[in-house]
Design a protein around this nucleic acid. Structure first.
Length: 739
DNA sequence: GAGCACTGC
């Protein structure tokens, strides 16, 4: 289609606000660095024809000092010649802000109704980078430059030509436009993070690029795995995709290792922080630990020891504050990391020091300036997936070399720093993996497989993954989707599956939401699904556990935790006038507001696919229909009481009710939302179900005659026979016409 | 009788 060179831009076809066309002579994809430099230095903004502001010129001077700016000519030479490019650049190179702008000057998307997209793994990054780039380009955010993230579309169709967005958002768009025809160039940023969405997009875009020769693809990454991407995006085996390298702009960080392995990394970490405090020059400390409990504990201990030091010898050390940082902290408390260190006690005594004790959140999501010392024990909590028992769990595991490098880099943002690694150099070299395993190898892929099928991928096992997941993981996902009737026995998407994929939900939740109108309770299921999609709503402050548990008991519905969640949301809604309601009930206001947001989004998707929003009756009858609807999504997550404990059906896993469970008895059959493996295997968010519903609403799965003989099978057979007896000689179990 | 690494739709 675009075999011929498109016509250059000529004056006269644009606005008459100011005479002269800044992009005169620009030929799409033939644009040179000299032309762009001239346009940048011009007085008129080529994209909105307004005069450049004073602020623009000021920012332009700063931009020109970025490492990537010097390489503009090199970039255009490569961009003209190659369809796919890999860019590596460390922090501070300016690649995220500048490369998309370079591309715009070459693509001229505004002149042909196209867009340039740049993806980010995180929402805040998409927003803040878009804001910065809008300023740099001297345009209003949401007009020429915008962003698109869940719950917020800051773009204007027809006007926006540079769009920052989350990778998940672009993947969503691909589901309805598999060739992503709106985009002239797609830039995947932070590709080294290997999020699920980025990985799927890479596989997808590699093939879209074959179908659309005029599409340009840029993969941007931190240094370590560039070669992997170059090989993956090679045109043929012998010519890897070209590499464009941008130097970073950070300060050197000196690395120290321990001589011997540390048996207790938390203790060693605390000791190291105090050693820094006593012996090192002024500068803040960042300590990486694995989770909330560990962090709070370490903060307490560091504080006690530092106060001791100060009391013993007030002239030898300065005052110290210790600030915890993890994602479940309320935003106001997270802000404390930007507080200044405590002041000197008097002009001659040592400077104060700020110590931040953080999870991995400080490795990627949050950057803190002023850190000079990093303490890295070498561990983080990582998700692992066991396809055999279909369980995702969190395990404290050694980090990768790439992660260790990233952590060390946090010490060199404002001046030269030091990083203390609490492991030996030999262990770093020999024991640590190069890269953290990509998410696709560590996750339950039910959702991803449904997305891929919706994207038209026929053969999931042979899809061109950057790293292919274990076949068993794919099989488990296909099996689940087949039982949910999202896929037929040949693996084709069903009509139901097509709608399920449109909901930003796990397949089980999507399924039960879509069938819930049959049970006249979609309003209630919608609320429950929303509550299950947000973080835990229950607050339990350490010093008020008893009060919190009492408040929870008042909101508890004994038939099931799902009903309790429904009750919490409805009670909150009924008490909106009372601003203290959530607080006095030990409920997280933040989580409820999120649930409300999710609920609105899901409701609009329901409207789009004509899933009725109904609510009939109230009291026990309504609650029973809600529990029946739950079965339609979660019939595979059912446990049977045997002697003292529960056993999951089919997998025969021994499980216990989680202590947070609100059931007042131990019913024979329960359905659970999740299986968690902590100190013991637990099932969490649990509701009583009637075994007859299992046989009726999930007959395909409860094909019990073929099951191996055990207590679960015998119990279900008794239920089945009783049902048959009751129904006489009519058709035994009428399956509801739903799927 | 116990948690919740971190994202994203």
């Amino acid at each position: 289609m675009h075999k011929d060179t498109p016509p250059p831009i000529h004056p006269g076809d644009a606005s008459k606000k100011i005479s002269g066309e800044p992009l005169y002579g620009f030929v799409p994809r033939r644009v040179t660095a000299r032309q762009v430099q001239a346009a940048l230095d011009g007085d008129v903004n080529p994209f909105n024809k307004l005069p450049h502001s004073a602020q623009y010129k000021k920012i332009l001077e700063v931009r020109k000092k970025l490492p990537v700016h010097v390489q503009m000519a090199e970039f255009y030479e490569m961009f003209i010649k190659h369809q796919m490019i890999v860019i590596v650049g460390e922090t501070g190179s300016g690649k995220t802000t500048q490369i998309p702008q370079f591309v715009c000057y070459s693509d001229l998307p505004h002149a042909k109704g196209k867009l340039v997209a740049c993806t980010q793994p995180r929402r805040v990054a998409a927003m803040s980078v878009a804001k910065r780039v809008a300023d740099e380009m001297d345009v209003t955010l949401g007009k020429e430059v915008g962003y698109s993230i869940r719950f917020e579309d800051m773009t204007e169709p027809g006007t926006t030509f540079l769009k920052y967005m989350t990778d998940g958002m672009l993947l969503r768009e691909a589901m309805n436009d598999p060739d992503l025809n709106r985009y002239s160039t797609i830039i995947l940023d932070e590709a080294h993070e290997r999020t699920l969405a980025t990985d799927i997009l890479m596989g997808l875009l590699k093939h879209v690029a074959r179908r659309r020769p005029e599409l340009r693809l840029i993969i941007m990454s931190a240094t370590l795995d560039a070669q992997k991407f170059q090989r993956y995006f090679s045109i043929n085996k012998d010519s890897p995709a070209p590499l464009f390298k941008v130097p970073g702009r950070t300060h050197p960080v000196e690395i120290f290792y321990t001589q011997e392995p540390e048996p207790d990394y938390v203790e060693a970490a605390i000791r190291t922080v105090l050693m820094i405090h006593r012996a090192e020059d002024e500068g803040d400390v960042l300590l990486f630990l694995t989770g909330e409990e560990e962090i709070e504990d370490a903060c307490r201990k560091i504080k006690i020891e530092a106060d001791d030091l100060l009391n013993q010898d007030p002239d030898a050390v300065g005052p110290l504050i210790c600030i915890p940082l993890y994602s479940s902290l309320p935003p106001a408390q997270q802000q404390r990391i930007f507080d200044p260190p405590p002041p000197r006690r008097n002009p001659d005594s040592p400077a104060g020091r700020k110590v931040i004790v953080a999870t991995n959140i400080a490795e990627t999501s949050l950057t803190i300036d002023g850190i000079v010392y990093v303490v890295d024990p070498g561990f983080s909590k990582q998700k692992v997936y066991n396809p055999r028992i279909r369980v995702e769990s969190l395990l404290v595991s050694p980090i990768s070399k790439a992660s260790a490098q990233q952590r060390a880099g946090r010490a060199g943002r404002t001046k030269p720093g030091k990083c203390f690694r609490l492991y030996t150099e030999k262990d770093f070299m020999k024991e640590l993996e190069d890269q953290t395993h990509p998410e696709i190898l560590r996750s339950n892929l039910a959702n991803t497989v449904l997305e891929l099928v919706k994207l038209g991928i026929k053969d999931l096992v042979r899809f061109d993954y950057v790293d292919a997941p274990a076949p068993e993981t794919l099989m488990r996902a296909l099996e689940l989707l087949n039982y949910l009737a999202a896929l037929d026995d040949e693996g084709n998407l069903t009509a139901l599956g097509g709608i399920m994929a449109e909901f930003p939900l796990d397949p089980q939740l999507a399924k039960m939401l879509i069938v819930s109108p049959d049970f006249k309770c979609s309003n209630e299921i919608l609320t429950i699904v929303s509550m299950l999609s947000v973080p835990n709503v229950w607050l339990r402050p350490n010093n008020q556990r008893k009060e919190a548990d009492q408040a929870k008991a008042l909101l508890t519905i004994p038939d099931g935790d799902h009903l309790t969640l429904l009750n919490v949301y409805n009670s909150w809604m009924q008490n909106l006038k009372d601003p203290n309601w959530s607080w006095s009930n030990y409920i997280s206001q933040r989580a409820l507001l999120q649930a409300e947001n999710v609920r609105q989004q899901l409701e609009s998707t329901m409207v789009r696919f004509e899933v009725d929003l109904v609510s009939v009756g109230d009291g026990p009858k309504l609650y029973q229909r809600v529990r029946e609807a739950l079965v339609c999504g979660f019939f595979m997550q059912v446990a049977h009481k045997e002697e003292k404990n529960y056993v999951t059906i089919k997998d025969s896993q021994q499980v216990s009710l989680h202590p947070s469970c609100g059931l007042d008895t131990q019913p024979e059959w329960v359905l659970f939302n999740e299986f968690v493996l902590t100190t013991r295997p637990y099932i969490r968010t649990v509701t009583v179900v009637n075994p007859e519903w299992l046989l009726r609403d999930a007959a395909n799965y409860y094909d019990i005659d073929s099951w191996k003989d055990n207590e679960v099978k015998r119990s279900l057979l008794r239920v089945k026979n009783k049902l048959l007896g009751r129904k006489g000689d009519g058709p035994p179990l009428k399956k509801k016409p739903k799927t």
